[in-house]
């Protein structure tokens, strides 16, 4: 009888610890993160055509980079560089903010690499991304 009771206790303990893990979500609803999201969403309207033309691509460190400047008229290259720099500044801040919002600043690098994979996974076909060997078309 005691044994059965103990077994039940053990099973419920294991279940509870499983539930605890499943419920662990990352905090992303902070004003700082929402502001970065908005800023990036607005900028994406300008960036979308550059992804399609192959002028820019997704890097393996969760940022974007100019891949083929010749896909852009000379007069527009300066503004493209500025867009890329602004986007990367937002992305760097985003990874840092998520780590900070979850009270684990040391998670920044892992959050960045998680994002790097997910950006690529969700990219439209025809967009470019970087892997170990260089630029790859999705």
């Amino acid at each position: 009888m005691k044994k059965i009771l103990f077994g039940l206790l053990l099973v419920s303990g294991l279940l509870a610890s499983q539930l605890g893990m499943a419920a662990a979500d990352l905090e992303i609803n902070t004003p700082a993160i929402s502001a970065l999201q908005n800023s990036m969403q607005n900028r994406h309207g300008q960036l979308a055509s550059f992804y399609t033309s192959g002028a820019i691509g997704l890097t393996k460190d969760g940022l974007i980079a100019v891949k083929d400047a010749s896909a852009v008229p000379l007069k527009d290259r300066q503004s493209l560089n500025a867009l890329v720099a602004a986007e990367n500044a937002d992305r760097n801040k985003l990874y840092k903010e998520i780590a900070a919002a979850n009270a684990h600043p040391e998670w920044e690098a892992e959050i960045r690499s998680t994002f790097a994979q997910r950006w690529v996974q969700k990219a439209q076909s025809g967009w470019y991304y970087q892997d170990a060997s260089g630029w790859v078309k999705r």
Partner: peptide, 15 residues
């Protein structure tokens, strides 16, 4: 959890 959070943000940024 990080993957879930990333997906949520990317879906929002890329609509």
């Amino acid at each position: 959890a990080a993957e879930k959070a990333a997906d949520k943000i990317i879906d929002d940024v890329w609509q």
